[in-house]
């Protein structure tokens, strides 16, 4: 039975696309059949983050409007063969997505994959609501920072009211993914702690992704961080989160960068 997962946040720039790509890749690396769907019509970026930007021929809007078959628009990852990407359109506007069309595509994806991961656009408007509409579960990506937490609270409200599940009177399973976390700063009282954010948002914690230069490095080279550097701290955090999504119980830790002697020696250089 396929699961449809929306990765959402309200606020932009908190790591939705990075997390959708990394969680999708981590699940696929564990042998699951995964498709990551970019819902950010007009501002697509998942293709770039996953390193498939030059392979996009058809997109979600083409499929919805009947100009292409789903199989023509899906891009299979070159590194993990159970991972696919359905890109958003870059040239159309967000009104090109229709609720019926999205429902049809999601239903078709459910038959082909174990996981359908919907990468939501920022905001709370139409695009974000279409991305969450058919989800079974939600990952709410939040930075330990006031504006991000406030927007996440708003998105949680929408997940509980504007989704098919909510309209049927069922409960949407929601998970908090705390990203760009800095344990040392949180301990010094400079940054909201995990417990603060959990207490305010009151949804269960899926994982804590530490702030790391590996994340930017991964997007620079067009690879989910779980593929570009599987042993790095953020990658390990994403692997743990993916295992929790599959129902495993994994102790909650904030992975730390392991620095070897040579790295420590050269770690301070600028480039």
């Amino acid at each position: 039975m396929a699961k449809v997962l929306v990765v959402t946040s309200g606020k932009g720039g908190v790591g939705k696309t990075t997390s959708a790509a990394a969680l999708g890749a981590a699940l696929a690396q564990a042998g699951q059949k995964v498709v990551v769907v970019d819902f950010d019509v007009g501002l697509r970026n998942l293709d770039l983050v996953m390193g498939a930007e030059r392979r996009v021929v058809f997109d979600l809007v083409n499929v919805i409007q009947g100009d292409a078959k789903l199989a023509q628009a899906l891009i299979r990852d070159k590194r993990v063969d159970t991972l696919s990407l359905l890109p958003a359109s870059q040239t159309r506007d967000k009104d090109a997505l229709t609720p019926e069309g999205v429902a049809r595509v999601i239903a078709e994806l459910r038959e082909k994959f174990d996981w359908v991961i919907c990468d939501s656009p920022a905001g709370i408007e139409r695009g974000a609501q279409l991305a969450m509409r058919h989800a079974d579960q939600a990952v709410v990506v939040t930075n330990p920072e006031v504006s991000s937490v406030r927007d996440s609270d708003r998105i949680i409200g929408l997940l509980d009211s504007r989704t098919e599940l909510a309209e049927r009177g069922e409960r949407m399973e929601k998970h908090l993914l705390l990203t760009r976390y800095e344990t040392a700063r949180a301990n010094r009282g400079e940054m909201l702690k995990t417990e603060d954010v959990l207490e305010i948002l009151s949804i269960p914690l899926l994982g804590i992704i530490p702030e790391s230069q590996e994340v930017l490095r991964a997007s620079n080279i067009g690879s989910p961080v779980t593929l570009s550097n599987p042993l790095s701290a953020p990658a390990r955090a994403y692997f743990d989160a993916a295992r929790r999504l599959r129902g495993e119980t994994v102790p909650m830790t904030v992975p730390e960068e392991k620095r070897g002697f040579v790295q420590r020696l050269f770690g301070r250089r600028v480039a």
């Binding site: 406030r150 609270d153 009282g189 400079e190 603060d196 305010i200």
Partner: peptide, 13 residues
């Protein structure tokens, strides 16, 4: 400043 952030969030939310 985190405690202040937390308090402001609790009130506004």
């Amino acid at each position: 400043t985190a405690p202040l952030a937390r308090e402001r969030l609790q009130i506004i939310l």
